[in-house]
Design a protein around this nucleic acid. Structure first.
Lengths: 144, 144
DNA sequence: ACGCTAGGTCTGTTTTACAAACTCAGCTAG
DNA sequence: CTAGCTGAGTTTGTAAAACAGACCTAGCGT
């Protein structure tokens, strides 16, 4: 993911510099769902090893994941990848993508991750102002 | 944007089949901000013409944009692209991306689009349950 | 010392992105 | 009527990425 692009000043474009490819958000999804090891990501996603290695580097450099060397008993030390607080904030992005997909690209198999509140009720991102939800048709779009 | 990929069953993955590349969400951003013509997108984004033509086709096929032939007075008829209701729901995704970028990738220039409520107060997507906001640290992630 | 495994890197091939040139249809000016 | 301009692409050639598969390496168990 490089950098120079039209309308780069926009925060959306700057976010897509880090996340805007086929795989990166799926890696973040898996990491938020609990995957930490190279092989876990690889097996879940079925993506090429070199591309995965590259994306993990990008996500670590971007502060979304943190690489830590972990020693578990009975196993040799190995690097694992953990979601940072910054990365965890992408739950909102993933929730929005998943909600859009579930509503507009229906599919009969269950999702890989679901987001719920403490009571187990599914939650999805919506625009809020203060702490009140603002329906989509009341959201105004202003060009900068 | 092709189709076969690991964990394809997940709605997030299915959404990224349509939107998961460098440009597509920026095209949607511009469309939501009011752009309709090929050249408007091209000038705003500075992307190659053939890629833009391909992405517009994909977005039309995916129901995000609608292609209409528009005749304006004093100009010849030409195709223009309009956001559908399905596309408008992507405002939540764009809002989440923009909010994440603004908070974690600060930049001194203004955004290209901003979302506000009727009073002009900025709004950003947050998880809600019923109509109450659920703080991020109370959102539970369950693997499917 | 030997092989196994996790986590990569390297090589060669296919896709995709990209920039620049070309096309084509519908005005618009001469 | 013809000539040129403009918007919206398409074509062509080249550079960068993605991809599949083979290869490599460190540490561990036996």
């Amino acid at each position: 993911m490089d950098d120079i692009r039209g309308s780069l000043r926009c925060p959306i474009a700057r976010t897509l510099d880090v996340l805007g490819d086929r795989w990166t958000l799926l890696i973040v999804r898996d990491a938020i769902a609990g995957s930490t090891r190279f092989t876990e990501f690889r097996e879940s996603l079925g993506m090429p090893r070199d591309v995965l290695a590259d994306r993990l580097d990008t996500l670590v450099a971007g502060g979304v994941l943190e690489r830590r060397t972990v020693s578990r008993e009975g196993q040799r030390a190995r690097d694992e990848y953990f979601v940072t607080d910054v990365g965890r904030e992408l739950m909102v992005v993933l929730g929005a993508l998943g909600d859009w997909g579930a509503r507009n690209r229906p599919w009969d198999e269950p999702p890989l991750v679901t987001f719920t509140d403490a009571a187990g009720t599914p939650v999805a991102p919506r625009f809020v102002s203060g702490s009140r939800e603002v329906p989509l048709d009341e959201v105004l779009v202003a060009a900068g």
